[in-house]
Design a protein around this nucleic acid. Sequence first.
DNA 1: CTGAAAGCGCTTACAG
DNA 2: CTGAAAGCGCTTACAG
Lengths: 344, 344
Amino acid sequence: MPSSPVDHARTGVRPTMKDVAAAAGVGLKTVSRVVNGESGVRDGTAERVREAIEALGFRRNDSARLLRTGRTASVALVLEDISDPFSSALSRAVEQVAAAEGCLLFTGSSGERADRETELALAFCARRVDGLIVVPAGDDHRYLLPEIASGTPVVFLDRPAGGIDADAVLSDNAGGARRGTAHLIAHGHRRIGFIGDLRAIHTAAERERGYRAAMAEAGLPVDDRWVDCGPTDRARVGEAVRRLTAGPDAVTALFTANNRVTLAALHHLPAERRPAVVGFDDLELADLLTPGLTVVAQDPAALGALAARRLFARLAGDAGAPARLEVPTLFIPRGSGETPPNGI
Amino acid sequence: MPSSPVDHARTGVRPTMKDVAAAAGVGLKTVSRVVNGESGVRDGTAERVREAIEALGFRRNDSARLLRTGRTASVALVLEDISDPFSSALSRAVEQVAAAEGCLLFTGSSGERADRETELALAFCARRVDGLIVVPAGDDHRYLLPEIASGTPVVFLDRPAGGIDADAVLSDNAGGARRGTAHLIAHGHRRIGFIGDLRAIHTAAERERGYRAAMAEAGLPVDDRWVDCGPTDRARVGEAVRRLTAGPDAVTALFTANNRVTLAALHHLPAERRPAVVGFDDLELADLLTPGLTVVAQDPAALGALAARRLFARLAGDAGAPARLEVPTLFIPRGSGETPPNGI
DNA sequence: CTGAAAGCGCTTACAG
DNA sequence: CTGAAAGCGCTTACAG
């Protein structure tokens, strides 16, 4: 049952407090008092104002109010790509904390491009968001120094800031990778491959560090040909899988260092002498694969919530030294990481 | 190599154009001209202004500029849950179109609650976003009539608006479900179960309609016990799977009507006499399952982009009648839908 | 209890 | 080429 627009709301013309004041025959401040539920307005006056508001279809312009107030009651989140499950889980967690604080949330995707990250972060600052959370794409964040100095708190998420000392909330990337690799070693693997993201990415470097630490602790050598870092597209990862799993020196197990790498690798795994696999990041159907996919799961909900809470603590006046907060990972064995070495 | 904040930026104090004007010894308007790259400023003057801007660390406050301008250069997207892959894919598509139009994007999750949808949508309107895209949680959108009448265009996405006549961009839900069901019929199935979301949800009802249409076209009866609609949590879906696949009258195939239902159903599928499965919505590892999961895939990127383009067309002055735009689905056979009926 | 004035940080419309 | 005044839609700080 469609109904038609109400009469009083002429298209494109929004009544202001001034209009309401004129209609009710009162001063501007009295309208403001009624709209904001302040006390000290006689019942009759308030009633007339309310009638005028109703008749004109008045709705306060929050952007104008916030200009006077000095806050915008909004925060912004710059992520890698909102359509990535990890990013969107971060976003949900940040949104929930922001909502509890009465803040609306801007989101923007950098697409892993440093210039786009900068552009978005500065655009949000130009809007004077109350605070900013950034999942870094670039490695130099000095461009944010003036904003931070001017009073806009910035918290870095998933990866630390580059070139500046700032709050950061990170996963225990090295610890998680070490745990996953140690698991493969415990199941008898000695030649374990590592396929990761570009080394320039902090999380990728940390995970490689964890992998190497586990190997070193077990007294196992790491052949440089076992470690393959680069872009996470299917072609490159497929090539890496083929190279690592071929020939007499083939690895018997693979550690795939993020969700996209794991996904691509699973599509290219050889049918024969299938290597054991442990992946970093959980995937939605991981437990339904045959065998189930063993993973080192991150906790994006915890990461996002922690970053948001840190941001609001800063907004509430917390002036402590910048801190690096770490969120533990969860190891989930499901089968693919428990396969014994083949052909040895 | 952390560096310290620059001197001129005293914490919490942002210089304004007025400060710049005073520092440069020029009028406010001249600063505005330089900041906005307008012509008609002598080189020397412009240079002095630029120096003052640099020295003070001035950055224009876009919120203030936009108040005067009457636009906010922002749009908002109210979705079901940003952490859901379908929602986040919509968000990414909307963001890309918005970015091309020079707009920043607010996102908010209703959690499928009508009151929260209303609260978010009105909060965004109060901020005077230039336009709004809503994935409905509720079924009565008359509360948006005043906003629409006041000139804020609203486009509905994934589900149509309730009680008002407005633009809507939808998947071909009925057509997709019909196609998927017909496929099961073509593979010899006669007793086909349908497990769906709450009937109150438009997409759920449409998909059931498509399922029934396919059955009717094939001259097959639909036993009411084969159709199970309700919340999409694992417990309820698991119960439905058990009920539909048990006993002598067990269905030989299941149509699972959205991603969450499919996910839950896959976890509860009986090992013996495993029914054929066709799911609505694609899943990330669907092709790696054994057998691969046959799906009716939606195209969230196309849905989001179309909705956003519609919104910006409205903003550009398109005053045509509200339209309902439909995006086709894609049928992807991968194995689970091609299993023949068992035990017949 | 009520409201006129000033101001938030910009731009618009004019006047020199 | 340049700038003082008015205004965007509100709130703050005062005065009655």
